[in-house]
């Protein structure tokens, strides 16, 4: 295993190899709809969707080192914003995206602002509680459709062309996933990305170097929230129906699992994690209700024996 990962990381660290891998992968992703069945496309669309969610959570957990156990809440805020605005107020779908970005950013700000100064384990619990509160609110209010949720959310059109087939959504989510990778990459390699790493490694030393740790964490939290919110908007119109059960604690855990599995803080790792997350249950359908148990055990083993995840760590 160790030997394999050394070879892999050496091979990948060559810039030329890396570019050719990326191009090949992009090519495969682009032309997949030509050969794949609808079932395959459905699964792959789901993969791209989780890539976006996992990358969003990765900003919070992987980059800034904050354990967020209520990430599904931001995904819910985005989905409900779009769902309510399009189905009850007749707002154009594309207009709801900036509103959803605003709402999820606000939610991130409201919950993050006062809590990010807390110790890491308290933060985990607060985010867990927050996730449950959002779900319960969605369940109890009338405007969100109560326990049965919202149905009949209209599919969006772009330049008069309506997105209504799986292949359309495949490309929409592929673009979102690529965009999420791009934004994550740029953020990671920036002043802000470095600041996240300083705070993650040693909060006090970071503060002594003049870094406002609360502000830096808040940036991570709000940007992560926006990723989730945008993913939620597109989720709502793809499914045309949303219900509070989609945003349960298990959803947050699943997204976290994707991040941890592949390797926190590493974009290719997180992408692989998202793949594993979606493909594993499809491949092992026969396991039935044991599926999640196997998943949980795999996660435990990874934490105990390879806490840095599947993707090899950067070599010095």
């Amino acid at each position: 295993m160790a030997n394999f990962s050394t070879i892999l990381s050496e091979w990948i660290s060559s810039q030329k190899n890396r570019m050719s891998i990326l191009l090949t992968l992009a090519g495969i992703a682009m032309f997949l709809p030509l050969v794949s069945s609808n079932y395959g496309l459905e699964v792959m669309t789901n993969v791209w969707f989780y890539v976006m969610l996992c990358l969003g959570l990765n900003i919070v957990v992987g980059y800034a080192g904050l354990l967020d156990l209520g990430y599904a809440a931001f995904f819910a805020v985005g989905a409900y914003t779009t769902g309510i605005l399009t189905s009850q107020f007749g707002v154009n779908f594309w207009l709801t995206i900036p509103i959803a970005v605003g709402c999820s950013a606000c939610a991130g700000f409201i919950i993050g602002g006062p809590t990010l100064r807390l110790r890491s384990d308290y933060l985990a619990i607060v985010t867990l509680g927050f996730g449950e509160i959002v779900r319960l609110i969605a369940r109890n209010l009338e405007i969100t459709g109560g326990a049965s949720g919202l149905i009949g959310i209209e599919r969006p059109s772009i330049f008069g062309f309506q997105l209504n087939q799986i292949v359309h959504f495949y490309y929409v989510f592929l673009i979102l996933a690529i965009l999420a990778c791009f934004v994550s990459y740029r953020l990671q390699h920036s002043r802000l990305g470095r600041a996240w790493q300083y705070v993650r490694e040693d909060e006090d030393a970071a503060e002594a170097m003049g870094i406002n740790r609360v502000a830096v964490k808040l940036y991570a939290y709000v940007i992560g929230a926006i990723f989730g919110g945008v993913a939620g908007c597109f989720f709502a119109v793809k499914m045309t129906a949303i219900s509070p059960e989609t945003f349960m604690f298990q959803q947050s855990v699943l997204i976290l699992l994707g991040v941890v599995l592949g390797g926190m803080g590493k974009i290719p790792g997180v992408v692989i994690g998202a793949f594993a997350l979606v493909l594993f249950p499809e491949v092992f359908r026969d396991l039935g209700s044991m599926r999640m148990l196997v998943f949980a055990i795999v996660m435990l083993i990874i934490m105990l024996y390879r806490p840095e995840g599947i993707w090899p760590a950067k070599k010095s």
């Binding site: 080192g65 384990d121 976290l256 941890v260 926190m264 209700s289 148990l293 998943f295 435990l300 934490m303």
Partner: peptide, 22 residues
């Protein structure tokens, strides 16, 4: 690191409830 042990605890929790669920 604290983050790792918290996630480990979470994984233990998942093993337990998914186990009983199964």
């Amino acid at each position: 690191p604290r983050l790792s042990i918290l996630i480990t605890a979470l994984a233990v929790s998942m093993v337990l409830y998914n186990g009983v669920m199964a």
